[in-house]
């Protein structure tokens, strides 16, 4: 056992699960509920059924990919293109899960358990799990994350249904606002996360080339924009790094290269 194993926890797996559920009820649930209300309204606005909306939330449980699949199916893209776009959009889940699972490893848990837990890993639960789990005893980590994740998951299912119903029962003007919640939420989530230069570059180039490429080719627009914007950002980021390194080489006597 590691030193972390001695950390003070909730006393049992059951108590850790309940604590995870309690942690989810509050700010994370409210913000996520608002964004999934937007998704529910969006589902209604493109004439999908409530069951389709709930199914999407239940089995995908990653809003960006859900929106991509909905928008692309609505504009008539092929399944292959939808799969490509969703794969690119949700790629982040892979390194996220990879990093988190490495810290949740519980030698007593059955082998299939992490694969169940993995379905509940989305941005919100991931951030909380990374912050909280390492401070718990090893055997209480996955129950806590599971309790948190399942609660968030149930909240998003309810919110999807609520948005769907609200879309028709509120004035048309208000339902415009509900549908608009989704792009706003994504936009702010990205803005909140703009600490790395490469991401700022990717976001700026994606926003700049996204609409014109969509006009050029509605089917391929999204995938092409992502690959182009991402590659531009990645290349620029490396170029800036290389320049900074060269400048640092030329000014070895302690000058601040950022000041030139």
């Amino acid at each position: 056992m590691t030193a972390e194993g001695e950390a003070a926890g909730y006393g049992s797996r059951g108590a850790a699960l309940a604590a995870g559920a309690r942690a989810a009820v509050g700010a994370p649930a409210v913000v996520l509920a608002a964004s999934y209300v937007g998704f529910g309204a969006l589902v209604r606005s493109v004439d999908w059924s409530l069951g389709m909306g709930m199914l999407s939330t239940g089995i995908a449980f990653a809003l960006p990919g859900q929106i991509v699949a909905l928008e692309m199916a609505h504009t008539g893209a092929s399944l292959l293109l939808i799969a490509t776009a969703v794969a690119l959009t949700n790629f982040r889940l892979m390194p996220m899960t990879l990093v988190l699972m490495g810290r949740l490893r519980d030698p007593e848990a059955p082998r299939w358990w992490p694969y169940v837990l993995a379905h509940l890993i989305a941005v919100t639960s991931w951030l909380v799990a990374l912050q909280k789990a390492p401070r718990l005893p090893v055997r209480e980590r996955t129950p806590f994350v599971f309790g948190f994740g399942v609660t968030i998951w149930l909240v998003t299912l309810c919110a999807t249904a609520a948005g769907f119903v609200l879309h028709d029962s509120v004035p048309a003007l208000v339902s415009l606002g509900l549908v608009f919640l989704t792009p706003l939420y994504f936009f702010l989530m990205m803005v909140a996360d703009l600490r790395q230069r490469a991401r700022v570059l990717a976001m700026a180039s994606g926003a700049a080339i996204g609409p014109p490429l969509h006009l050029l080719t509605p089917e391929w627009g999204l995938v092409l924009s992502g690959v182009a914007a991402g590659s531009i950002a990645f290349g620029l980021d490396r170029l800036i790094d290389a320049r900074a390194a060269r400048r640092a080489d030329r000014a070895p006597d302690g000058e601040d290269p950022g000041d030139v």
């Binding site: 960006p64 994504f186 990717a202 994606g206 690959v227 991402g230 950002a233």
Partner: peptide, 16 residues
């Protein structure tokens, strides 16, 4: 991959 994912999401938001 992280850059592509961010670029794609930004393109989607801009389009929406």
């Amino acid at each position: 991959c992280g850059c592509v994912a961010h670029g794609l999401l930004a393109a989607l938001i801009a389009r929406m």
